[in-house]
Write a protein that binds this DNA or RNA. Sequence first.
DNA 1: CCTACCGATCGGTAGG
DNA 2: CCTACCGATCGGTAGG
Lengths: 201, 201
Amino acid sequence: MTTTARAHEITTAAEQLFGRQGYHATTIRQVAGALDLQGGSLYAHVSSKEALLAAVVERSADRFDSAMSAALDCNDDPSAQLRHAVAAHVGVITENLPAATVYFQDWRHVSTPRLRRLRHRRDAYEQRWRDLIQTGVGEGHFGCTDVDMAARLCLSTCNWVYQWFRPDGELTADTVAEQIAGLLLDGLRPASRPSIEESTK
Amino acid sequence: MTTTARAHEITTAAEQLFGRQGYHATTIRQVAGALDLQGGSLYAHVSSKEALLAAVVERSADRFDSAMSAALDCNDDPSAQLRHAVAAHVGVITENLPAATVYFQDWRHVSTPRLRRLRHRRDAYEQRWRDLIQTGVGEGHFGCTDVDMAARLCLSTCNWVYQWFRPDGELTADTVAEQIAGLLLDGLRPASRPSIEESTK
DNA sequence: CCTACCGATCGGTAGG
DNA sequence: CCTACCGATCGGTAGG
């Protein structure tokens, strides 16, 4: 767990290549080449290819954690909190697309000891979503019957953004986040409740 | 595009291994071994590893297409149609988890000529979802402003099921589908509309 | 469908 | 951080 400046640069290069090509389709020499290094030289900083993968995934987990902390750092009502959480989560993905791709797709290629730690981190993160929704249910803002499932479905919609979002496309991350939050809160059917489009402006 | 019985068996074996381990982490010899063949013998039936991947992905696309056709083969109202579509889509995933994993994760490793065809198939499939929602909006059942986005978000929630569903878990595919459809239709906030849990029984 | 083999490339290491 | 190298394994082919 050395965290020199050089190690960070290596993780960043790996992030891009793993994300664009996939972990197993990426060569340790490609990562080295991106930093103008020779293949073997990487091993002065990284113990193995898989340790590098773990570093990339851990960094993604860090981003999700801190974005969520910032998003929940207020005492708004649950609906607003959910909007903030969605914006934070979607923001991490859209601003780090290759990293998010590694996080979601290559997660499973981390070997067991490291994988357990990552699983705990992910579980803790999802717990924060469950807590948010549970609070909303308790205060009468939300009406779902299965909090665990509701949290999972919120995250599903947010997570999938990594599959189709294009930074150079027409949609901004904020627009996407608003639309997702709107759907999660009110569903497809016509609202018999005040519209949220105006109130978030 | 030979479709002998043996070719189907090979595709099935590849489906399992690609799905569980990932395309690049799977050896052509592992696929052969699953069928008690020698490595090179596969090439009597398959032109390349990537052609085998394409076959797996195409078969998944077939499943989604035909499940969707069956689901929409009735004249229910849009809300019921959406429930059917969700159940169909989720069913394909839960009943073919490894194949779905390949479909969603290893899609990008299909090379350009074949990839274009697959992209068209996927676009056509998504268009059916857009049409469904557009009809619902037209008839006043749905109230969303952006049909394209709504369709994408419906699919997002359904697709992510491949990431967490466990066939030996407590949740059945039907339960999951009902919960997803419920969330998509009515959202998290307490319904001021009739509950759907009873009407689908 | 098998045996035997090919060139290429991989992750990783030794020694400096 | 480089040079040079290692064993292992890969996808694919020839010839039967």
